[in-house]
Computed example of a mutant assay.
Amino acid sequence: MPKIAIIQAGTVLYDKSGTLEKVKNYVEEAAENGADLVLFPEAFIGGYPKWNNFGITMGTRTPEGRKEFKRYFENAIEENGEESKFIESLASQKNIHIVIGVVEREASTLYCSIFFYSPDGYLGKHRKLLPTALERCVWGQGDGSTMPVFSTSVGRIGGAICWENYMPLYRMTLYSKEIQIYLAPTVDDRDVWLSTMRTIALEGR
């Protein structure tokens, strides 16, 4: 059976280099403790700016909110950018699988994504299909083209981000691809989340 390390930690908001240092430290600790795979929370790189509205109200945005969003935008990462290459190298050096929530930047749009890495390199990504509530003003919507299940040495892995776990058809998509290790990075810290995960574990067998 593979050993999985689950990280419960916060981002260094607006400081992706500081966050990458945390990633490095947690990955090293997980590897030293014999983990085969390490899972980080939703939007760990880039951050989940809880309680922040970026100055958005219906029909208008404040100058201060625009400046803050610019900082947030600049701390997102790209799929094949230097930060992603850093994590890829880390997975190889420590001989571990890394699954991490990121704020992904492509052109002028941000996405809430999961990046998957194995010791052999970058595997691919999943983009959150439908951001929740105000997230829709910050992150773009996934188009359904990134719903992978990867065959790895630890098993067939894939993931659903936060409230995507309440989407029955997406869960069925992962089940139909014969997922074995179902990963669910989230910022949801309510007790009800545990019952949600137990239900999915029973449902998906």
Rank of each mutant, 00 (worst) to 15 (best):
E203T: 15
T57L: 09
L183H: 00
R156F: 02
A76S: 15
L194D: 13
T132H: 14
E74L: 14
D189E: 14
V99W: 00
G55Y: 04
R156N: 10
E82R: 14
T19H: 03
Y26D: 07
P131V: 05
E135G: 01
K67G: 12
L134I: 12
S145N: 12
A76F: 13
W51V: 00
R171M: 11
I114A: 03
N75F: 09
N33I: 03
I45N: 05
Q8A: 09
M167T: 08
Y111G: 02
S151K: 14
A43M: 09
L90E: 14
C137F: 13
E74K: 12
P185Q: 02
L37E: 04
Y72L: 02
Y117L: 03
G34L: 01
L123T: 08
I96E: 04
V38T: 07
Y26R: 11
N165G: 08
R205V: 08
G204T: 11
R61I: 15
C112F: 03
F40N: 00
L169G: 05
Y26K: 09
W193M: 12
K177I: 03
V149F: 04
G204K: 10
R171V: 13
A91Q: 13
S89R: 15
E106W: 10
G140L: 04
V12I: 10
T60G: 09
F150P: 05
D191F: 12
N25K: 10
F86I: 05
T19I: 01
K24W: 02
D191L: 14
G81F: 10
N53L: 10
L39M: 02
H126W: 04
P148S: 06
N25W: 02
F69K: 01
T60A: 13
E32L: 10
R105F: 10
Q93T: 14
N53M: 07
V138L: 13
F40Q: 00
V12E: 14
T152D: 03
D189Q: 11
K67N: 13
S108C: 07
C112Y: 03
L183Q: 07
K24P: 01
K125Y: 05
